[in-house]
């Protein structure tokens, strides 16, 4: 088993009101000691792959992220293989 992680984030130019709401709540919750200027919220997918994660498998996962897990009109994504 190997784990491949796909992280999906809104593109930097896209407004993220959910991230903003989290950021604005920080002082109210007592987390005001550190200056957190901005919060952006994304999605993380963990794909458990049976068998080797070779180039062919990674290409397919890249394709899957590009067409399905992320909407590249509004989101960027990264694909990482986690060390087992």
């Amino acid at each position: 088993m190997a784990r491949v992680v796909v992280d999906v984030m809104l593109k930097p130019e896209i407004l993220d009101p959910q991230g903003q709401a989290v950021q604005r709540a920080l002082p109210r919750l007592g987390f005001d000691g550190i200056a957190i200027a901005e919060v952006r919220q994304g999605k993380r997918f963990e794909l458990e792959v049976d068998g080797p994660v070779d180039d062919a498998a990674l290409t397919r996962i890249q394709e899957l992220a590009d067409t399905f897990l992320a909407n590249t009109v509004i989101e960027d994504f990264t694909v990482k293989v986690e060390p087992s």
């Binding site: 896209i14 407004l15 009101p17 959910q18 709401a21 909407n71 009109v73 509004i74």
Partner: peptide, 17 residues
């Protein structure tokens, strides 16, 4: 229709949530 790309652009969460 935007997800299929029959129409351009995308829909996001309302700005006021």
């Amino acid at each position: 229709l935007t997800e299929t790309h029959l129409l351009p652009g995308a829909m996001l969460r309302n700005n006021h949530l």
